[in-house]
């Protein structure tokens, strides 16, 4: 059995290839083109890398965060469902899933039966994702890695109060003109902490139930993770490929569908 799960994110598109033993391949592409084109490219890449033909794939399951269509997929699923299934696949006892992506933070909590209990996404007017860090890194002429590395040099953080990326940028710039300006590492540590604090604040809307899985591309950032762990006050799971959890979930939904339909040909809920 070979299943492909695709997550068309706002910036990057992710793919996971699943067979009977588990995940065999992951791929990520960051190109700004039509969803179909990006999906076609990433599928092609995956097939080539694994010397497979399209016919040898049993099912392609896709999810799109930008609302674009996914004509390439045999089955389409929503973001929450994919995130939920992907997280459960990795950690069967997880109760809160926090996905910090480029544009948004998505939080899902699970009930005792490990079904979706509540969910939330950040408010439109409050940058709740990696784009917040990216925009500021760009303005400062640093790479994300450099920025995180510099933030890790200090334990002290300077408060960045603004929730808005643009306001935060101005706040940071204003520190540069303070006399004397605070150490840059502390400002940057504060910046990462500010995103973490916002993400943790968002959990207040659904209530954290431990254990928590932190995933999404931003959870690769050590300075962010450090602040997040400091603030969350619950056991935190991390995973080696956090940006692929949604794509994994899509693939898992496909696998379950095939397994179910083998058992009962009429099951069609996709679960």
């Amino acid at each position: 059995m070979k299943i492909i799960g695709i997550d068309i994110g706002s910036i990057a598109t992710k793919l996971v290839l699943l067979n009977d033993t588990g995940v065999v391949y992951r791929e990520s592409l960051s190109i700004s083109e039509r969803s179909e084109t990006v999906a076609a490219k990433i599928i092609e890449k995956a097939l080539q890398a694994n010397s497979l033909s399209r016919d040898s794939i049993d099912l392609i399951v896709g999810t799109s965060r930008s609302g674009g269509d996914a004509p390439f997929a045999d089955m389409k699923k929503g973001l929450y469902m994919c995130l939920f299934k992907g997280a459960l696949e990795l950690f069967p006892d997880v109760k809160t899933i926090i996905d910090v992506g480029a544009e948004n933070t998505t939080i899902v909590t699970l009930d005792k039966e490990s079904q979706i209990k509540d969910f939330t996404v950040n408010d439109k007017c409050a940058a709740g994702g990696g784009v917040f860090l990216e925009a500021i890194a760009k303005a400062m002429g640093l790479s994300l890695d450099e920025m995180a590395a510099e933030a890790m040099k200090t334990e002290k953080t300077i408060d960045i109060a603004s929730t808005c990326t643009i306001f935060a940028e101005q706040e940071i710039l204003s520190y540069a003109f303070e006399d004397p300006p605070p150490p840059r590492s502390e400002i940057l540590a504060g910046l990462h902490e500010s995103l973490a604090s916002r993400v943790v604040g968002l959990t207040g809307k659904v209530g954290v139930i431990p254990p928590v899985l932190l995933c999404g591309g931003v959870s690769l950032n050590p300075a962010f993770v450090r602040s997040f762990k400091k603030l969350i006050n619950a056991e935190v799971y991390l995973t080696e490929a956090p940006q692929f959890v949604v794509a994994l979930g899509a693939a898992v939904i496909g696998r379950n569908y095939i397994l179910n339909s083998k058992e009962s040909p009429h099951a069609g809920s996709g679960n």
Binding site: K77, G78, Y80, M81, Q115, I116, F119, S269
Partner: peptide
């Protein structure tokens, strides 16, 4: 997009 995700969750719940 938001509504679709929600409808999916509600459908699963109801099923």
């Amino acid at each position: 997009l938001r509504l679709k995700d929600f409808i999916e969750i509600l459908s699963e719940r109801k099923a």
